[in-house]
């Protein structure tokens, strides 16, 4: 349950994971995140969904805006965001590995 508490980010939980994963290799603004997520996962996030996820993640202190004069604000992971992402990915890896193992033996 601890994992859920840490990663309880509402209806947009998958988009939030995509955003965190996208920011794992460095800061990006919204448009770059959308392109990166599409390349990474094949999922084309809509702008409303993306910014819903960004707003929730920022509110929870998992990402932060990088100060800039540009209208397009880049975001980066915070330590809490990196930790939450790692936790979630490890959990997913267990699910994936177990699922694949079971499929192979079925």
């Amino acid at each position: 349950m601890a994992n859920k508490g840490n990663f309880d980010i509402g209806r947009f939980s998958d988009p939030s994971l995509f955003v965190l994963a996208s920011l794992a290799d460095g800061e990006k603004h919204g448009y770059a995140m959308m392109a990166d997520i599409e390349t990474m996962s094949g999922v084309r996030l809509g702008p409303g969904t993306l910014y819903g996820a960004i707003a929730r993640l920022e509110r929870r202190g998992m990402i932060e805006v990088v100060p800039t004069e540009d209208r397009r604000k880049p975001y980066r992971l915070t330590a809490a965001g990196a930790s939450a992402l790692q936790e979630q990915l490890l959990s997913l890896r267990n699910v994936v590995q177990t699922g694949l193992k079971r499929l192979a033996t079925a």
């Binding site: 509402g10 209806r11 947009f12 809509g46 702008p47 409303g48 969904t49 910014y51 819903g52 707003a55 929730r56 509110r59």
Partner: peptide, 16 residues
């Protein structure tokens, strides 16, 4: 439509 849904979500569950 995605923006409209995002806006509805922001009204129903304030993110800011």
């Amino acid at each position: 439509a995605d923006v409209a849904l995002g806006a509805a979500d922001a009204w129903l569950r304030p993110q800011v």
